[in-house]
């Protein structure tokens, strides 16, 4: 899919909360005698005063710093997440108010499991690309939920990124094309009033993650007449390092192409924030002219693929906000599983 009017990312901003839980804290609590390798080294956990709203606000402020626009110029603030603080009441209006984008702005929360953030990006591209708006803000952010002791608890993390889309002449990276690939695949879900999601174990791999990323990628590659080697960098949704390594290989990309965007080892899976955070890490290091391939995945299921090209402006605006690396090193280790349970609000008081 291509827009009428050329569109680009004019600002981007990441956020990763400071507390980190080493995977071994979970293992020693739930599987004390197991010698199975752990999926990641550690994961980010929201601070006790953080949630999707607060994390989105900081990422949005970072994106606005790099976009160097007045927040009142935004015509949309969309937050893609599966961890809305309110079941009913938009996350996005709180974010829009906090960054100073209200009131002449569209705002909504989007939900599509881990691809809610890239769905917000697609919509923002369309908003700007159609000429309806000059600037639109898309955020993918999660404070991911996971059942205590579940396999997902090792990776379910917190963080994400925000992107301001705008006219190509102000772009830090141009959007060459994008597309979406969606089917009804029940690999992961959470019903209303359930605290934690359910997942399809082995089913989450082949028919879900791999099928949809391959589908979206093949579609956009054939539309653009490209192949993996035409890209300098690639970013995929990162539920765990194993899945990313496998999809990289399946699609013909090299480990070098995905390396700068691989944040899952240090952060875990930030769900709707995952691929967006990876893309921010790539933009932190990309050179002008570098072509970047991006493909998300969200359970339920679907993928959004984007083909991007970095511009000269990226270099001059990059230092206007902290890089992903700075957030990764801004770290405080949680030493007790009990402290983590309190932080993550997994202790039910009533």
């Amino acid at each position: 899919m291509k827009t009428e009017r050329a569109v680009g990312i004019v600002g981007y901003g990441a956020y990763v909360p400071r507390p980190r839980l080493p995977a071994k804290r979970i293992a020693e609590t739930w599987l004390p005698s197991s010698s199975r390798p752990l999926p990641v080294r550690e994961k980010s956990v929201p601070g006790i005063d953080e949630d999707t709203v607060t994390m989105s606000i900081e990422a949005a402020r970072n994106a606005l710093s790099r976009a160097a626009i007045d927040p009142s110029e935004l015509r949309a603030v969309w937050v893609g997440t599966e961890s809305k603080p309110y079941a009913v009441k938009p996350t996005s209006t709180i974010v829009a108010e906090a960054i100073g984008a209200t009131p002449n702005v569209s705002a909504a929360d989007m939900e599509f499991a881990c691809k809610a953030g890239s769905e917000a990006m697609q919509t923002a591209v369309a908003y700007v690309g159609s000429g309806m708006a000059d600037y639109a803000l898309a955020i993918g952010m999660d404070a991911a939920q996971s059942k205590p002791g579940d396999a997902l608890e090792y990776t379910a993390a917190a963080g994400g990124a925000a992107y301001v889309f705008g006219p190509a002449d102000r772009a830090l990276a141009l959007v060459e094309a994008s597309n979406s690939y969606v089917t009804d695949t029940p690999d992961f879900f959470r019903r209303q009033h359930m605290h934690y999601p359910e997942h399809g174990h082995r089913f989450t791999g082949e028919p879900a993650y791999f099928t949809h990323i391959q589908g979206a990628t093949q579609e956009i590659m054939s539309e653009l007449g490209r192949e993996a080697a035409d890209y300098r960098w690639a970013v995929f949704h990162q539920p765990n390092p194993k899945f990313v390594h496998r999809i990289t290989k399946l699609l013909g990309f090299t480990p070098e192409q995905v390396k700068p965007g691989m944040v899952v080892e240090e952060v875990g899976n930030t769900y709707a924030g995952s691929s967006l955070l990876g893309l921010a890490a790539v933009l932190d290091v990309a050179a002008p002219g570098d072509r970047i391939f991006f493909c998300s995945y969200g359970s339920g299921a679907g993928s959004d693929a984007f083909s991007l090209v970095a511009t000269e402006r990226l270099i001059s605006m990059r230092d206007a906000a902290p890089r992903v690396r700075q957030y990764l090193s801004h770290r405080y280790e949680i030493r007790e599983y009990g402290h983590y349970l309190r932080h993550a609000r997994k202790i039910r008081m009533h």
Partner: peptide, 29 residues
């Protein structure tokens, strides 16, 4: 300044967000 939760749940269940301060993140801004 950062915007964080000041009260997680007021008596009516809504969340109060507001300014807090944290040590300046290292690096440029």
């Amino acid at each position: 300044m950062v915007t964080r939760k000041i009260q997680d749940s007021s008596e009516h269940g809504y969340i109060v967000y507001g300014y807090k301060f944290r040590p300046l993140l290292t690096g440029a801004r």
